[in-house]
């Protein structure tokens, strides 16, 4: 096995969660990398949907933006922005939403809006919501890809941009969120999944050579570890070759 970086391990682990034939709403950056990797490995019939309205995009190279020209030329069809959000996302036609985060809490609520200070006078102004709140609300399930650090995995997010499980069990139903919510968080250290009873993110897998203690040390809350903690298999040569072909 050749050497690989923790970011490569994260992209590979995220790609492995996608099933062939899934309809996947893809954000730019790490989610787009993972989805395009999956389409070249185990999920050739993965349907990629970008919020620019490109349904079934099949890009040869990784797009920089969600609206690069190649997404339109390779798509099954290109629809308007109101249509992609209303007919396809809101109506419940998407299996998996793939999201990033600047901050995340134990219930997988996401902040991509402001950090520090208050909303009117923030320390750091982030890009904001984009399509994320409704992706988080309406997809059958959500996968979050984010590097694990004390800065990102916080006790309480500074702003709830997109809802995971709110403050715990029953909140999604109470809020009228019809999708299933986050089912996994893939990081550069391992994989966290919501506890079926409490909805709290729990460490269920570590990447090779990573310990549970290391993951806990990169998490602000008292991260629970699954009793049957497993180790994610290393990237295969094929996964690494394809991934590097995409990102080079």
């Amino acid at each position: 096995m050749s050497d690989y970086t923790s970011d490569e391990m994260m992209s590979v682990a995220a790609a492995r969660t996608l099933r062939d034939g899934d309809v996947c709403f893809v954000g730019i950056g790490l989610p787009s990398t993972a989805a395009n990797l999956a389409r070249r490995i185990q999920a050739p019939h993965l349907v990629l949907i970008y919020e620019s309205g490109t349904l079934g995009a099949k890009p040869e190279t990784l797009p920089l933006s969600i609206g690069d020209g190649e997404l339109a030329t390779t798509a099954d069809t290109v629809v308007s922005v109101p249509e992609v959000f209303n007919y396809w996302l809101q109506a419940g036609r998407i299996d998996v939403g793939f999201l990033g985060a600047a901050q995340l809490d134990r219930f997988a609520n996401i902040n991509t809006t402001v950090i520090g200070g208050d909303y009117a006078d923030p320390k750091v102004r982030l890009p904001g919501a984009g399509g994320a709140p409704e992706i988080a609300a309406s997809c059958r399930e959500v996968t979050i890809v984010v590097r694990q650090s004390l800065r990102a995995f916080v006790e309480k997010v500074d702003f709830v941009t997109s809802v995971g499980f709110g403050s715990g069990p029953g909140d999604r139903e109470r809020l009228g969120l019809r999708g299933g919510g986050p089912q996994r968080v893939i990081t550069d250290l391992g994989v966290l999944e919501p506890d079926p009873a409490t909805c709290e993110l729990t460490l269920t897998r570590v990447h090779p050579a990573v310990t549970a203690e290391e993951v806990r040390a990169a998490t602000c809350w008292d991260l629970k570890v699954a009793p049957d903690l497993r180790t994610e298999p290393e990237p295969t040569e094929r996964e690494l070759t394809v991934l590097r072909g995409l990102t080079s």
Partner: peptide
């Protein structure tokens, strides 16, 4: 629309 529910946006 079905949107914003549970987020901090409506408060701001």
């Amino acid at each position: 629309l079905r949107g914003y529910s549970g987020t901090d946006l409506p408060g701001k």
